[in-house]
Design a protein around this nucleic acid. Structure first.
Length: 262
DNA sequence: CCGGATGTTCACCT
DNA sequence: GAGGTGAACATCCG
């Protein structure tokens, strides 16, 4: 998916639907509906209005006029399209082409007197989903606004710091690409046990989370990190020129510099 | 042809 | 219980 930065741009796009009334929904893929049948979903949302958008980590939420919350998850390849316009032209690991067969969920808006339009989730790999009233509190604090004490709490674990940062229940929003760039920026080895992080290192890591999100947001997304060009082929550290390492940590391919990440 | 890819969940180990 | 591993989902790309 889309990590935090992409989902935030999806949220801003979805903001366009605030104030619109949901006329109908298309649910061509029952598997995409988590926890509800199409009939239940339809009964809960059709006829109500989108009153707000929100985001916690990689979860996009649409608050409806009846108090229900519609949670949208995008997996690795999910895209959001509103009124035919996509928030992001091309996902790095997503499909280049567009295929109507990948439309997994659509809301159609408008009545005689209210604004029309539609919102579609397109997801080739079907790794995302739509859930009514998702358990948002199962997610940790959002990475974009997490405080230093909250980060310390998130790292109260014997797991590698990389695994803890990717654990959405501990801290929400960081995926594989962002996490590698955060640790690179912080100078921390990804396999370091979380509870071995010192107070000074925690402060550095906290700043690195914020800096990485700020810088990559400005550059255009999670795939614009300093390590991105080095991910595919064995590259060199942009900071000190050392050969980068490629390891499996927390179940994911991890790129890191053994010289300055300690 | 094969392996891996911005993710999550689950079963099964240690 | 905590942590790790591999599978599953489906498609594209190198």
């Amino acid at each position: 998916m889309p990590e935090l930065l992409e989902v935030e741009s999806y949220r801003r796009l979805a903001d366009r639907t605030v104030g619109r009334r949901i006329r109908s929904i298309d649910t061509p893929d029952a598997w995409y509906l988590k926890g509800n049948t199409a009939e239940e979903l339809k009964a809960a949302v059709v006829g109500t209005t989108v009153v707000a958008t929100g985001r916690r980590g990689k979860l996009l939420t649409l608050t409806l006029g009846n108090g229900r919350i519609l949670g949208l998850r995008f997996g690795m390849t999910g895209r959001l399209i509103v009124d035919g316009e996509a928030a992001i032209d091309e996902l790095v690991y997503g499909a280049r082409r567009q295929n109507p067969g990948w439309d997994r969920f659509t809301m159609r808006f408008g009545t005689r007197r209210e604004p029309p339009g539609w919102l579609t989730m397109s997801d080739p790999r079907r790794l995302g989903g739509v859930e009514l009233d998702p358990d948002i509190e199962r997610l940790g604090p959002d990475a974009a606004t997490i405080s230093r004490p909250q980060l310390m709490e998130a790292l109260r674990s014997a797991a590698p710091v990389k695994a803890a940062l990717m654990d959405q229940g501990r801290i929400a929003g960081l995926g594989n690409l962002l996490t590698d760039d955060v640790l690179w920026r912080a100078g921390l080895a990804p396999a370091r046990s979380s509870n071995s992080i010192t107070g000074d290192e925690l402060a550095t890591l906290h700043r690195a989370v914020r800096a990485t999100l700020r810088v990559l947001a400005r550059r255009g997304g999670s795939h614009t990190g300093d390590l991105q060009d080095e991910r595919s082929r064995g590259g060199h550290c942009p900071r000190d020129g050392a050969p980068l390492r490629r390891d499996q940590i927390g179940g994911r391919t991890t790129i890191w510099c053994p010289v300055h990440q300690r």
